[in-house]
């Protein structure tokens, strides 16, 4: 039988470290983009770190995830290496996708990360397929599908969720509800407040957790993943969250489609600040230990950026490679 992950101090420390890694990675990527070193579109995950770290705490390499256009955090939490990630964002040959995918398609099959996705709503059917495969191959692995509130309006989610419930597939649909699809607020893109309400219509449990609280996400995910591994079918896990940055790129404040007060309100609930306060309060990590995490992560990032900068560009002869097996 499978084991569920318990919320030990080590797990809490791992989750903290994971959130710090994501935050620093994204901050650095944002700066590098502004410096013109990263081409294309970057959708950053700052503010939403608790979700990736809380869910991924339960997953092994053999479990799969599907991600979104906002995918760096998911890959980091699944074990992605900074150096190959930065290299990919730079379009270098040493990147996870040999420079062919970039931010929007960053992936690593060995880590069970079935790709960021440029198509909103691209993930749910693929995660359902991975879950089908897990069941078909008689493993007890689970697929977790991350998608936004905006993506919940794509027909692909409806088809995938219905099929997953019907076939009792080991998949968890994790809605990262940050209140916006691009520049359109949730109130202007759907007539419901809780995406989890949809679960009933598919015949699966719908659970809502505070997506700014990694422990709440961890607990919600534990139950959903246990249910999936036990063969009892999918769950829709909605995490209420907020993105601190703009839809694309960095600028978080002074935007026309949301008020600075709203941003401030959510920033007071910063998932990392809240988590660290608890760690200190409960004497799980002392301040010095927390600071050491930041220092380590900063060093890792610095080395990774250097690796990416020094890596070679892909050769144009590779353009027609990897089209077919």
């Amino acid at each position: 039988m499978f084991v569920t992950v318990e919320l030990t101090n080590d797990v809490l420390k791992d989750m903290h470290r994971c959130m710090v890694q994501i935050r620093r990675f994204e901050e650095t990527a944002g700066k590098l983009m502004e410096d013109g070193k990263i081409p294309g579109a970057l959708h950053l995950y700052v503010g939403e770190e608790a979700i990736a770290s809380g869910v991924m705490a339960h997953l092994s390499k053999e479990d799969q995830i599907t991600s979104t256009h906002r995918g760096h955090g998911h890959l980091i939490a699944k074990g992605g290496e900074f150096d190959r990630m930065f290299a990919e964002l730079f379009g270098k040959a040493t990147g996870y996708c040999k420079g062919k995918g970039g931010s929007m398609h960053i992936s690593n099959m060995d880590l069970g990360m079935l790709g960021a996705n440029g198509i909103v709503g691209g993930g749910p059917p693929i995660a359902t397929g991975a879950a089908f495969s897990n069941k078909f191959r008689k493993t007890d692995n689970v697929a977790c599908c991350f998608f936004g509130d905006g993506a919940s309006n794509e027909g692909s989610l409806h088809e995938a969720a219905n099929m997953a419930a019907l076939f009792k597939l080991p998949v968890v649909f994790v809605c990262e509800n940050n209140g916006f699809g691009e520049y359109t607020s949730q109130a202007n893109h759907q007539a419901i407040v809780d995406v989890a309400d949809r679960a009933q219509g598919y015949g699966m449990p719908g659970v809502i957790v505070d997506g700014m609280d990694a422990v709440a996400v961890f607990e919600g995910a534990r139950e959903a993943i246990a249910r999936a591994r036990a063969g009892d079918g999918p769950t829709l896990l909605e995490c209420k969250t907020y993105r601190f940055y703009d839809h694309v790129g960095v600028r978080g404040m002074g935007l026309s489609y949301r008020s600075d007060e709203e941003v401030e309100f959510w920033k007071k609930r910063d998932p990392i600040d809240q988590f660290e306060a608890k760690l200190r309060e409960q004497n799980i990590m002392a301040e010095a230990e927390i600071q050491a995490v930041y220092e380590q992560v900063a060093a890792e990032i610095e080395a990774a950026v250097q690796f990416a900068e020094e890596s070679p560009m892909p050769d144009p002869s590779t353009i027609t490679e990897d089209v077919y097996a």
Binding site: P39, G40, G91, K92, C97, G99, K100, G101, G102, M104, H105, M313, P314, P316, T318, I319, T320, V323
Partner: peptide, 16 residues
Amino acid sequence: APFAPVPFSPVLESAY
């Protein structure tokens, strides 16, 4: 264009 999807990396894209 060559028979391949559009690659991300600027060096590949501009050759493509």
